Simulated scan of single mutants.
Amino acid sequence: MNQDTRVHYRNATGVWKFIGAVLLLGLFQVAQADVDAGREAYKNQDYETALREFMPLAEEGNMNAQFYMGLMYANGHGLPQDPEEAQRWFEKFSEQLDVSAKFNLAVMYYQGKSVPQDVPKAVYWFKRAAEEGDPEAQFNLGFIYDNGYGVAQDREEAIKWYEEAANQGIVEAQNNLGVMYSEGQGVAKDYVQAYFWFNVAAKQGDKNAEKYRDTLAKDMNTSQVAEAIKLTHEWQLSSGH
């Protein structure tokens, strides 16, 4: 399956709906005229003026200016392209915002939108968001490591992040864990765990998970199915799902 159809992108209302909207709409609503002037100059590709407006503000800690400095270094707009400097400014920018900013920076690097595509940097930002408990970032890390997109394939790392996301109710992660346990991908084959994760996803209304679970049950004995169902009930009680 195409990776872009499986990696989660944030669509719900939050810090950003789309990362590119920062460039055109100014979602951060900063009143300073200098920021507005810099943003307008950047949009018009007048990078010399943009740099003159943004640099002092960025050094003073203005997060909007820091974001644009990151973009300018990432793309070589108005100054030499420098990925390390871009990362430094994005770091400063992200420190002032919540987990959604880190998630969207990861998406920006993963898609190659507004900055050159860089999956390792996307992984870095997904991890920053995942470590703060973002379930979509956790799933994305699992998916990237599971399939080896831009990084070395690492099924153990994939399972780690899938489990984090699955425990927060991400159905795709639950299904992927079911497949990995049923086929022994990166983990010892375990039909009880496979049935459990398929059953959890099925309980959330996923019809494919229901089919996988029922097919798997044909190769299991009664005690194994009973244990998997017990695990499902315990998971539902502990997770609140």
Rank of each mutant, 00 (worst) to 15 (best):
A165K: 06
A106G: 03
A152R: 12
N140G: 02
Y110R: 13
Q66K: 07
Q153T: 07
G178Y: 00
Q138N: 06
M108E: 05
G186A: 11
K92Q: 14
I170C: 06
G178S: 03
A137W: 00
V123F: 00
D82W: 03
N104R: 09
P80S: 09
D82I: 06
E164R: 14
D134H: 09
N75S: 13
F103T: 03
E132Q: 15
Y149E: 15
G186M: 06
S182F: 08
V179F: 14
I144A: 02
Y68K: 08
F103R: 06
E164M: 14
A166T: 03
N75C: 14
Q117N: 11
G133K: 12
M180A: 09
D118G: 05
Y110G: 13
A158H: 00
A188G: 12
A152C: 10
V179K: 12
P135L: 13
F67Y: 13
Y149L: 15
Q96D: 08
W89Q: 03
A122T: 01
E85H: 14
V171C: 07
K189Q: 15
V151Y: 01
G169C: 06
F126A: 00
Y124D: 12
N175A: 11
D154W: 00
Y191Q: 13
G112F: 04
R155V: 13
G142S: 06
H77C: 11
Q153R: 12
V187S: 07
K160R: 10
F90M: 07
V119A: 04
V179H: 10
P135S: 09
A137M: 03
G70N: 05
Y73F: 13
A188P: 07
V107F: 06
D134Q: 09
E136W: 13
W161D: 02
Q174W: 01
A130P: 04
G142P: 04
V107T: 11
E91H: 14
Y145N: 02
A101H: 08
V171Y: 03
R155I: 12
I170P: 02
V119I: 10
E172M: 12
V123W: 00
Q117G: 07
G148P: 03
L177S: 00
I159G: 01
Q174R: 08
Y149W: 15
E172P: 07
P116A: 08
N75L: 12
S100Y: 12
S114A: 15
Y110D: 14
R88T: 12
G70M: 06
M72S: 03
V107Q: 08
V107W: 07
N104S: 08
P80E: 06
V151L: 04
K127S: 09
Q87I: 13
Y73K: 07
V179G: 06
E84L: 14
V123A: 01
Q117E: 15
D134R: 10
G184S: 08
F103H: 04
K189A: 11
Q168S: 11
G70Y: 02
E163V: 11
Y109H: 07
A173H: 03
R88I: 07
R155L: 15
E156G: 04
Y162D: 03
E164A: 09
E95G: 10
I144F: 00
V171I: 14
D190W: 10
E157G: 00
E131I: 06
A86P: 01
N104W: 04
K102T: 05
F90I: 05
D118A: 04
